[in-house]
């Protein structure tokens, strides 16, 4: 193992956290400035892919809240749930509610987008990276 790759392996985790933080920041600021769940999700995918390529898939999986497919599905579920919250108050589906301190179901919805993208695309990347080792 070359020193350079050792360096790469050691820096992988911090890099991942940085990317994830950036992703969350993009996600949260999206409502007021360019950004949002989708772009945030893609950044997170980039982070996870980095981790998977350098440290292997198990390491990447450990640092993700859920396995790819469940994560993606939970994302869709979250988005649906955020819409149902308004329905509990007798408002149409996807009517967003706001609390006094600035938290809202909009964020839940955007988080759903974030998870769905993060989960689905990491699912592709992990499987392909894994399969890449058997590729001819």
């Amino acid at each position: 193992m070359t020193p350079r790759s050792t360096l790469l392996m050691q820096s992988a985790r911090p890099l991942y956290w940085m990317l994830l933080a950036a992703a969350l920041w993009i996600l949260l600021r999206g409502h007021n400035e360019p950004g949002g769940g989708f772009i945030g999700g893609l950044l997170a995918v980039a982070g996870s892919s980095l981790l998977a390529i350098i440290l292997g898939i198990p390491a990447a999986l450990r640092l993700q809240p859920l396995a790819p497919l469940p994560l993606a599905m939970v994302g869709v579920g979250l988005a649906v749930l955020s819409g149902l919250a308004g329905a509990l108050h007798g408002l149409p589906f996807l009517t967003h509610l706001w609390t006094g301190i600035g938290l809202s179901t909009v964020m839940l919805f955007d988080l759903g987008v974030f998870f769905a993208v993060w989960g689905a695309l990491t699912g592709y990347v992990y499987a392909l990276v894994d399969a890449g080792e058997t590729a001819p």
Binding site: P68, L69, A72, M73, V113, A116, V117, G119
Partner: peptide
């Protein structure tokens, strides 16, 4: 996002 999740 349903399309994205279903794509996987």
């Amino acid at each position: 996002i349903a399309v994205v999740a279903f794509s996987l």
